[in-house]
Design a protein around this nucleic acid. Structure first.
Length: 267
DNA sequence: ATGCCCTCCGCTGGAGGA
């Protein structure tokens, strides 16, 4: 079984490339982030022609996640247990944003997640990011017993180590590399998950994101922030994993590349 | 060539991304 995750940076803007990538890579399950449309507006008919069922959870122009599967799609769950909303200055209550979607595909439980960016360390969005990650760990803790293979895949907006950014000095006082964010990843792992580290198809570190600006991709000024965490049943079945950096090339691409995981499940 | 920001909304710029 092939499972992949990809921050597409708008599914409508990316539709031609999404369809081409589905045809070429043939994932059985694809977790998407930043679909940037209402769930009902997801191009389900187009991906349906390629054999995929869709669970989409979106709200307008920001955020939004989806799971595509050609091996069945069941037990869809929108949002996290005790998920916080984004409470900005002056806002008493903020609606929960569409950032997490769980589904079971051929017995494998997957969560497609789009972790809040955080913006700046002193911004309310950063505190929201940390609260949101705590809710993610809580949700995994709730689901893990008896779940079968389970994985959380998506755009975590955190580089797990200093080596996971092209130049750590360029990220001084920035989000994505702080001790608190990395501690949140450690807490997620402590629920019983391990990270699946993908192969880089070029260079040494398997970056998954490169800014659109300043030739970041050709200069390989990237970040490894799209991550896969699996429970032992999942990680023990991993036969291969890689970042499909080819998809980042050319015009009309997302600024993130897909991360692919191949599983060899018993039975 | 991997090539100098892109998405959306909605309007002539702004917000968000990371």
């Amino acid at each position: 079984m092939r499972i992949a995750t990809w921050n597409v940076n708008s599914v409508s803007a990316r539709l031609p490339r999404l369809l081409a990538w589905l045809r070429a890579a043939e994932p059985d399950v694809l977790c998407l982030q930043e679909i940037k449309c209402d769930g009902e507006a997801f191009p389900s008919a187009e991906v349906g022609e390629l054999g995929y069922e869709v669970a989409a959870y979106g709200a307008g122009r920001w955020n939004g996640v989806a799971v595509l599967s050609r091996v069945g799609l069941a037990d869809v769950r929108q949002g996290l247990l005790d998920e916080p909303g984004f409470q900005d200055d002056g806002a008493l209550v903020a609606a929960t944003q569409p950032r997490a979607l769980g589904a079971t595909c051929a017995g494998v439980r997957v969560w497609s997640v789009y972790v809040p960016n955080g913006r700046e360390i002193d911004h309310p969005h950063y505190a929201y990011k940390l609260r949101w990650l705590a809710a993610l760990s809580e949700t995994v803790t709730e689901e893990l017993p008896g779940s079968g293979p389970l994985a959380v895949l998506g755009d975590f907006n955190i580089a797990p180590t200093d080596a996971d950014v092209w130049d750590i000095a360029a990220y001084a006082d920035s989000t994505h590399v702080t001790a608190a964010e990395r501690a949140a990843l450690d807490e997620l792992a402590k629920t019983g998950l391990d990270e699946v580290y993908p192969r880089a198809l070029k260079y040494d570190v398997p970056f998954t994101y490169w800014d659109y600006r300043q030739l970041a991709f050709p200069k390989n000024r990237g970040m490894r922030i799209d991550l896969v965490y699996g429970d032992p049943q999942f990680t023990s079945a991993v036969a291969d994993s890689y970042v499909d950096r080819e998809e980042r090339k050319g015009k009309g691409g997302s600024d993130h590349a897909p991360v692919v995981v191949d599983l060899e499940l018993a039975g």
